[in-house]
Amino acid sequence: MSNSDRVDSQKAPEPVGLYPHARRVGNLLFLSGVGPRERGSKKIPGVELDAQGNIVSYDIETQTHSVFRNVRYILEEAGSSWDRLVDVTVYLTDMKKDFPTYNRLWAEYFKDVPTPPCRTTLGITALPTPIAIELKCLATIGD
């Protein structure tokens, strides 16, 4: 790999715009925003949409598991891993309702990581696709 490489996962959902899943710069891996969509389909785990594509209902727990799985896919395909995450920015569309569930799942996923990543959680009004959560991550890679 060169000093600045594009990473395109074969398992994570396709980006919704002109950007890579991640970029490696030196020993750092910068991930683009990662949501819960599934690769190769318009299916969003834990989301029920109406005929116009508006969210009718959603399950933040299902979406969070899916987002974490997609982040893992990108990390592993780039040569990094879950325990090498350094910083995570979390975007939630309903902070009041979803933060307690998200926070509980975070604790479960990182309970065996000696030094969990730093985290910032933001409540926002909307995301580019009909999802309730997105993660922006920074990890280390290599030695």
Rank of each mutant, 00 (worst) to 15 (best):
S4M: 08
D5S: 13
K11P: 00
K11H: 14
A12S: 12
A12Y: 07
A12I: 08
P13L: 10
P13Y: 12
E14K: 14
P15Q: 15
P15D: 09
V16K: 01
V16F: 02
G17N: 08
L18A: 14
L18D: 15
L18W: 08
Y19C: 05
P20S: 15
H21K: 11
H21Y: 05
R23W: 04
R23F: 03
R23H: 03
N27M: 06
L28D: 01
F30K: 10
L31N: 05
S32W: 03
S32C: 13
G33Q: 10
V34M: 15
G35P: 01
G35S: 11
G35V: 02
G35F: 01
G35Q: 02
R37H: 14
E38N: 06
E38C: 04
E38K: 15
K43G: 00
I44E: 01
P45T: 12
G46Y: 06
V47S: 09
L49N: 10
L49R: 11
D50S: 09
Q52T: 11
G53C: 06
G53M: 07
G53Y: 08
N54V: 03
V56F: 08
Y58I: 03
D59F: 09
I60K: 03
T62I: 14
Q63K: 09
Q63H: 04
H65V: 11
V67S: 03
V67D: 04
F68D: 02
R69G: 00
R69D: 10
N70S: 06
N70H: 07
V71M: 09
V71P: 04
I74L: 03
I74S: 01
L75V: 08
L75S: 02
E76P: 00
E77M: 07
G79L: 10
S80D: 03
S80T: 09
W82N: 05
D83L: 05
D83G: 02
R84T: 02
L85G: 01
L85R: 11
V88I: 15
V90G: 00
Y91H: 13
Y91R: 13
L92I: 03
T93E: 04
M95H: 11
K96D: 10
K97Y: 01
K97S: 11
D98F: 04
D98G: 02
P100S: 07
T101A: 07
T101Y: 04
N103Q: 14
N103H: 14
W106S: 01
A107M: 09
E108H: 08
Y109N: 09
F110N: 12
F110Q: 09
D112Q: 12
V113W: 07
T115H: 11
C118R: 13
T120H: 12
L122K: 13
L122R: 14
L122E: 12
G123R: 11
G123Q: 11
I124N: 02
L127V: 05
L127G: 03
P128C: 08
I131Q: 11
I131P: 00
I133T: 04
I133Y: 01
E134D: 06
L135W: 15
C137Q: 06
L138Y: 04
A139H: 08
